[in-house]
Design a protein around this nucleic acid. Sequence first.
DNA 1: CATATGATGGACT
DNA 2: GTCCATCATATGG
Length: 185
Amino acid sequence: MVVQTCLKKKFFERSPEEVAKDLLGKILVRKVEDVYMKARIVETEAYFGPEDPASRASKGRNKISEKMWAEPGTILVYNVHKYQMLNFVTQSKEEPSAVLIRALESLNFDARTKGPGLLTDALGIDKEIHGQNVLSSNEIWIEGPEGEEEIYEIEDSFRVGVTEDLNERYRFFIKGNRFVSRPKV
DNA sequence: CATATGATGGACT
DNA sequence: GTCCATCATATGG
């Protein structure tokens, strides 16, 4: 029997790169009224602080980005065109950084989740949960099998769609998973 | 399969 | 008015 455990604060108190990799394979649970939607995280991206040109923290503090300086685990939601992007704050209040959820493998529902904008649509995520903490929210949280070995390979690439990327690969995804938004790099 | 392009709308300055 | 961490469609090999 696999024991599902909610993540602890410590999980998010690490670099966005580590958190992004470790979120792969975890189960995202979204509760809307009496409906529970469960999905496996299969693709993520790490964003750093002011030194990362693609990060919203590099544009200074504003109404959206200020939550990057909040507690690790804080939920950050912002829009790109007509879509919402779901992120979790990592590291610490002094070192703003975050992980973007880019694709999910739906487990108990049927909707398109192959892309950061599509998955928020599927889960009904909008700014209502912006600023909540994924460690304490009862509308969205993350579970993971404890002490299980990874049964998949992690592949990486440069980040998708950014106007100015860093010189490292900060996109991570589960190799071969059919829900990954852009399997080829 | 690959790459290219147009539509898209909310939030900020 | 400008920016954007997107998506769907169309085209070519």
